[in-house]
C-alpha cells in the first residue's frame, strides 16, 4: 500500500512549506525588524511585536493546513476504520 501522500497533497504541502519559509525570511527582514524603529504601533504594541505575532499566527495556520495534506495514506485509512 502507498504510504506516501498523493502528488496533489504533496504539492499543497510544498506550497505551505514555501509560504512558511517566505514568512520566516520576512520576519528577519526590515519589514518586521527595522533597526531602532518602534512605529507604527498597533493595539499599543510596537511594530516588531505585532508583526512578529501576526507572522507567528500565520505560520501556525499554515502548519494546520499542511497537516491536513501531509498524512500517511494508509494511516488515514486505518483511522477511518
Amino acid at each position: 500500500m502507498n504510504q506516501n501522500p498523493t502528488n496533489k497533497n504533496l504539492l499543497i504541502f510544498k506550497i505551505c512549506a514555501t509560504c512558511v519559509v517566505a514568512l520566516i525570511i520576512i520576519s528577519l527582514s526590515p519589514l518586521v525588524i527595522p533597526e531602532n524603529t518602534a512605529e507604527p504601533f498597533l493595539f499599543y504594541l510596537p511594530r516588531t511585536l505585532w508583526s512578529g505575532i501576526a507572522t507567528y499566527i500565520l505560520i501556525v495556520a499554515l502548519t494546520y493546513l499542511a497537516t491536513r495534506y501531509y498524512n500517511d495514506e494508509n494511516e488515514k485509512a486505518k483511522e477511518k476504520e
Binding site: 516588531t48 511585536l49 512578529g52 505575532i53 507572522t55 507567528y56
Partner: peptide, 9 residues
C-alpha cells in the same frame, strides 16, 4: 521585543 523573534518565530 526582539525576544519574540528570537523564540516565538
Amino acid at each position: 521585543v526582539g525576544a519574540w523573534i528570537f523564540l516565538g518565530i
